[in-house]
Design a protein around this nucleic acid. Structure first.
Lengths: 229, 229
DNA sequence: CCATAGTTCGAACGTTCGTTCAAATAGTAG
DNA sequence: CTACTATTTGAACGAACGTTCGAACTATGG
């Protein structure tokens, strides 16, 4: 069972970290998490750069200066959001991949996991996708490392699929196209008109899996090439 | 032959608009275009919100106050960039679609047109994609109108393809997935390691066309479903 | 030459930004 | 209660923000 990774920073000196305390989640952690939720909403609506600390103060009900008791800068706040969101989705994928051995099925699991988490945490995932390269130096390096790890996993899934079917295509282009399909939904998904997660995941998986498994295109031609079906 | 749409705003009163003058491109228009190029670079690197008018002044070599001779606000500047970029890509698609009648070929043309323009004007397209909903009111409405027009064209291309092949799938999901694949490249494309435009367009077109043309997925199963090839 | 319109700029406006800090309050253990 | 720590705050800091404005410059036609 996958569980959300705890919100913790290795940069700011965390106050009240319970190393061996009875309560695993301190009051500090709970209040911080609450602030992070409000901050995610604000960052999602206005964008990181355009969102002011005063906006965050208003949204969270904590005074402007009070916010700085929980993190050291606006930048660290974005880092905490992105780190938590990204780590959770990777952890969930990891434990989910144990369920299936078939290469195609594992790719379907990847897509389902990504979209399920994406739509269940739409605002956080928009902040993760949209504010992709605003963090610099230490913060940025750590997020980039998680991103590389996630990318690596997906690339290996694709390579196994390719091998198992004897296919030939650029794994890099395919993986990044798939990410594009999935991540772009934050710009258009509307729960009122669009399909539910499982259905959407199946549609995208169909497009992608059939797409990479088919014969390559050989140039313009008068007669249509035979398509399966 | 498709040509770039002229840079012109219906909001600010344009100075020196050549209604019937001998020169079609005034000194004013040329200077404005030069500023727009520099502004595009800055918006691309720092993001619209984080880019300051002083950054634009430094990059373009025009004094801070001098910029306001060419446009009335930072917001109008973004509008001019997006309007010009988006109008051009739509115009080019329109004239290009005359070249082919086959539904599949027309979709390939859409993809090729989009990616060619995207990679040839990578910075402007990033500004268009990334700063998608920052413009409000009049400016925002006008960009949204172009966007709807572009979306409509693509949707019709897909519907024709569906009809010609008797396929069944959600055109909306398919179109938006395709846009995701294509637009996401601004986050990863690297000319040193990635394929050239025509090759990339062919790979994406293969994935997409074969993807939407294949039999639907029927759920997990032990035996692999038959794939064309 | 002058007159006029087009163009550029330095200086400044008022506002908002992220962050700091000393002081005040709330919570808890003895 | 007292003593201590954890938490919260109002007020203020200097810096940077988008924008304005009048003066100065340039180009052009008469």
């Amino acid at each position: 069972m996958a569980t959300a990774t705890p919100i913790q920073s290795q940069f700011s000196a965390r106050r009240r970290s319970p190393v061996s305390g009875p309560r695993l989640e301190t009051r500090f952690d709970r209040r911080l998490a609450r602030i992070l939720v409000h901050a995610t909403n604000v960052f999602c609506d206005k964008g990181y750069a355009a969102a002011s600390m005063r906006d965050l103060s208003r949204a969270s009900g904590v005074s402007l200066s009070g916010l700085y008791y929980y993190f050291e800068s606006k930048e660290e706040l974005l880092y905490l959001i992105q780190k938590h969101t990204f780590s959770t989705i990777v952890d969930r994928l990891r434990s989910r991949l144990d369920e299936a051995a078939d290469p195609a099925e594992r790719i379907r699991l990847l897509i389902l996991n990504h979209l399920e988490y994406f739509l269940a945490n739409q605002k956080a995932m928009k902040v993760l996708s949209h504010e992709d390269d605003v963090l610099k130096n230490g913060f940025g390096a750590e997020i980039a490392a998680i991103k590389r790890k996630y990318y690596r996993i997906c690339l290996e899934l694709l390579d196994h699929y390719k091998l198992s079917r004897g296919l030939e295509f650029s794994s890099r282009t395919a993986v990044l196209s798939l990410f594009g399909m999935m991540n772009w939904i934050y710009t258009w998904y509307n729960p009122r008109v669009d399909a539910r997660v499982t259905e959407l995941a199946q549609e995208m998986a169909n497009i992608f899996l059939q797409g990479i498994g088919a014969v390559p295109y050989e140039g313009p031609q008068k007669k249509r090439p035979p398509i399966s079906d």
